[in-house]
């Protein structure tokens, strides 16, 4: 079932430049979270607000159908034009965004609906309001609660996967990455400025961080790499099919087993000697 590295590399036999992958992931004309939602689901109804403080437009959530199956979708949304990008804070969520996500996940758990998260963020927002309202706590709570959520969760990375802000939607049973997406503990700019005191050395940092889908597949951090295609209709149809099959399979597992597997998935991550 899982696409292996070898079958992936047959898509592009020669190794890709990580910096190019990063640029593709950030490309301005690229589809956003809402585009994916519109093309993958039918009958989508957006649900707003964290019921605590506000509605964060950087994260979009709601219910819809995936080939008939009711699912909850939660997505980072960067926006297309500049005014929308600004309104959505370029997809960098505040604590209320993560709290909305958690609320909708808990709701999905109640109705035993699978959860699809769509990750595309440079990171959780760094700002005065975000800190004053507990950005760290909001992410921490998501990590904790998602681990034992008794309904299937699948995270799909479609562009940037920046650090804790991405992980807060990605404690999932499976993590899939589109061919042109990245996932990293720190932005390559941040890494370059810490390491070489030169934010310009992004290209080098990209290579050091192993943030491309093929690297992460090899490191065991993701389950699948999804090839992209210029035939968008075909791409969406394939994705709908694959997601739906996986959700049906995950739904057939008893909840305790599902949670156990999810814990096991993260439990084995890390490299050390004893």
């Amino acid at each position: 079932m899982e696409q292996t590295f070898s079958s992936f590399s047959s898509l592009g036999a020669k190794p890709r430049d990580p910096y190019t992958v990063l640029q593709n992931a950030r490309a301005s004309g690229r589809f956003t979270g809402l585009d994916l939602i519109r093309n993958l689901t039918t009958d989508f109804m957006e649900l707003h607000g964290d019921r605590r403080f506000a509605d964060d437009p950087a994260i979009v959530g709601g219910v819809g159908r995936l080939l008939g199956l009711p699912i909850t979708v939660i997505a980072h949304e960067k926006g297309h034009d500049l005014s929308e990008k600004a309104r959505r804070n370029f997809g960098s969520a505040h604590p209320e965004g993560y709290r909305k996500a958690l609320r909708l996940m808990k709701q999905a758990e109640k109705f035993h609906r699978p959860v699809l998260t769509i990750v595309d963020t440079a990171g959780a927002f760094c700002g005065i309001g975000a800190e004053a309202r507990g950005q760290g706590l909001a992410i921490a709570e998501n990590l904790m609660e998602m681990m034992t959520l008794s309904t299937p969760v699948l995270a799909l990375f479609i562009g940037e996967g920046g650090s804790g802000g991405a992980l807060a939607l990605a404690v999932a049973d499976q993590v899939w990455m589109l061919e042109n997406s990245v996932y990293s503990v720190i932005s390559p700019e941040g890494c370059a400025s810490i390491l070489w005191k030169d934010a310009g050395k992004v290209r080098d940092a990209c290579a050091c961080l192993r943030m491309t889908p093929e690297d992460l597949l090899r490191l065991g951090a993701v389950e699948r790499v999804i090839p992209e295609s210029s035939d968008l209709e075909g791409f969406y149809a394939m994705l709908r099919q694959e997601l739906s099959e996986t959700f049906h399979r995950l739904l057939s597992l008893p909840s305790p087993e599902l949670c156990q597997n999810r814990y096991g998935r993260f439990r084995k991550m890390g490299v050390f000697s004893e």
Partner: peptide
């Protein structure tokens, strides 16, 4: 998180949080 261990460092956040949750 320790940048030098890349994605593995990030994953420790989820791993530890899961263990805290089971303890809780």
């Amino acid at each position: 998180a320790r940048m030098q261990e890349g994605i593995y460092s990030l994953m420790q956040m989820a791993k530890t949080s899961g263990a805290v949750k089971l303890h809780s």
